[in-house]
Amino acid sequence: MITIRDVSKSYHTRSGLKVVLRDVNFDVHPGEKLGILGRNGAGKSTIIRLLSGVENPTRGHIHRQMSVSWPLAFGGAFQTSLTGLDNLRFICRVYGVDPESKVPFVEEFSELGRYLREPVGSYSSGMLARLAFAISMTIEFDCFLIDEIIAVGDQRFHDKCHVELFERRADRAMIFVSHDINYIQAHCQRAAVLSDANLTMFDNVPEAYEFYLAQ
């Protein structure tokens, strides 16, 4: 379970203090799929960063009793002068997983072929996304953070991602952050709406959507 208690986050900007989140409270239970709806700039990415632990809240506590992933398919931590394989090895080492045991899966899943042994800097954005998704699937977590829709590659690759994440890992908790209601509706039982630095929880997605539209 993840418990978020009285979490506030504010940033210093040139025009003074900007409060992004104010006294946010919620829990995420094992296996639960929670959607967070919000318009651009409402603080969706901030909440993902706080949940992933890369940033700390200004006030309040986030207590994690299950392992939480980095934002799914996040490729920002790649070292572009290294090959795809070297980047995979780095992530595996950080999480204490034997890198060589994951190479066949990433080779097969990412469909990068010999490019896996080329510097990541030479990849197209589609190839980068495929590698990032494949690497995300090599480390097991109890809870996955999913920032915006994973629309990677062609339909076939999209389907593969779907199987890997939503079928093989259907038992995991997932937190989706998006402004797309269809996406949230397809995957979540519960949803919350982020507006004016407040997070409002709803027991079902339609109610959340109604509130979101009224904003």
């Binding site: 992933s52 890369v54 939480v68 980095w70 934002p71 920002g76 931590a77 950080v94 999480y95």
Partner: peptide
């Protein structure tokens, strides 16, 4: 900085 998305780093 992006490495810090891997919380143990």
């Amino acid at each position: 900085l992006a490495l810090m998305y891997h919380r143990n780093v």
